[in-house]
Design a binder for these strands. Structure first.
Lengths: 230, 230
DNA sequence: GTCTCATTCGATACACTGTATTGCTGCGTT
DNA sequence: AACGCAGCAATACAGTGTATCGAATGAGAC
């Protein structure tokens, strides 16, 4: 008996099943971030007392797991995949889009093993794309590498996005003009390569940055798939 | 005036500067995880009232930033780097080792831009390794790609490590034998590729898994560096 | 129709959190 | 010697996750 299959006890006043609880939590998180999700507020949104939730959920972390799994349903592509590369690409971009829709996902991504049905489905889709193209271990390594990149890239993108929002300025402009502390540090001359990157670098948009890095990683995977395992 | 340079006000009863505060917080986090870090406990460890900390730190998130920056000092290599590839490899492995020493780092990695002096130093070391090997934008993309992989891989590794510890079993054995929920899900036949990976996959240790994925990503980067920008 | 029992809900309670505010205390200066 | 002020501690507040428990409300048995 684990998180994902718990008998839904009936109730009269308002049906209130796990789906409704998770939906309310997601709505709260979408509006105010993860820290805006409290059991009290979730319950209040469902016209229930806080303790009522514990009939359906046994801890707040479990609620977070359920939220992640729910959002992972959005990641699964609609149509059937093309070749393996296209399949992985689509999965990666859909993950990113889900994180942009639900920024709190970035805080949770990779933080815990995704053991829900939709998490499994995403893992299945990823593995299935590479099935048969190499031995099991190589495929596994490929999946892990790609998803590590995806997780890390999304996390950084959301982090930067928040920082920009907090200062009201674009990351680049902020480093270049304002951000007195950063400017001063760069001016010390102790970070010449960094300074060059900041001042001479082109300001590319996040999506194409994500896409470029992803293609690089996919290139690397492609090279290992054609060749037999080391 | 930002987080990283604040005049240290003197005090009599016990010196108590920011370094001591950060050290105490890190000690607490090493022992009991991030959630064990509360301003009250940090202060208690320094024989001070909770409010005393606010003379040196303006919010708890700032304390977290300082903790991350402090640990990033451990990442910087001692000697001078070899070629770019060796340099990036060492930085990646040292980051991973730091995260294994301080597991809470995984929770914070990539969650916020690293703007502290040591964070800058790590960024500088990374960029310096690739300096001149390609145009600035390509170098930037390379750095972002590698560090996205590193962040994501470390995060997953720590997450799995915790899950193993929680169940007392190795991830693989757990999926294979115990973990009734997982076993049942796999038994549904809805996840054939996943089932194959779980049952037929070799159980490789985390370090070589990390290393292998890293080498793949470095291969990808190498291919882009020799070739001029797209 | 009435009684009983079990279940489920809500209220209360507890230990704790981050932080604002307030007043004291002891030092340095005039 | 008196004063002012900086820095610290105590108090306070709003909020958190969750355990416990009393009451009510439902169904089932006679």
């Amino acid at each position: 008996m684990t998180v994902w299959d718990r008998p839904a006890p009936p109730s009269r006043p308002v049906p209130l099943d796990r789906e409704r609880i998770v939906a309310a939590a997601i709505a709260l998180a979408d509006e105010g971030g993860l820290e805006a999700v409290s059991l009290r507020k979730v319950a209040a949104r469902l016209d229930a007392g806080p303790m009522r939730l514990y009939g359906y959920i046994s801890t707040k972390d479990e609620l977070f797991d359920l939220m992640v799994d729910e959002v992972q349903a959005e990641i699964l592509p609609d149509g059937q995949p093309g070749d393996w590369r296209e399949a992985l690409r689509v999965l990666a971009h859909r993950t990113r889009q889900a994180a942009l829709r639900h920024e709190w996902l970035a805080d949770l991504l990779g933080g815990r093993p995704a053991l829900g049905p939709n998490g499994f489905a995403v893992a299945e889709a990823t593995l299935a794309a590479l099935d048969g193209l190499a031995d099991v271990d190589t495929v596994m390594r490929a999946v892990e590498t790609v998803s590590a990149y995806v997780t890390g890239a999304i996390r950084r993108e959301i982090a930067n996005l928040r920082a920009e929002r907090a200062t009201g300025l674009s990351e680049r402009e902020w480093q270049r003009a304002n951000g007195p502390h950063v400017t001063r540090m760069l001016a010390t001359g102790r970070f010449p390569a960094l300074a060059k990157a900041v001042y001479d670098g082109t300001d590319v948009d996040a999506e194409s940055s994500f896409a470029t890095g992803l293609e690089w990683v996919l290139d690397a995977v492609a090279a290992k798939l054609t060749r037999p395992p080391a």
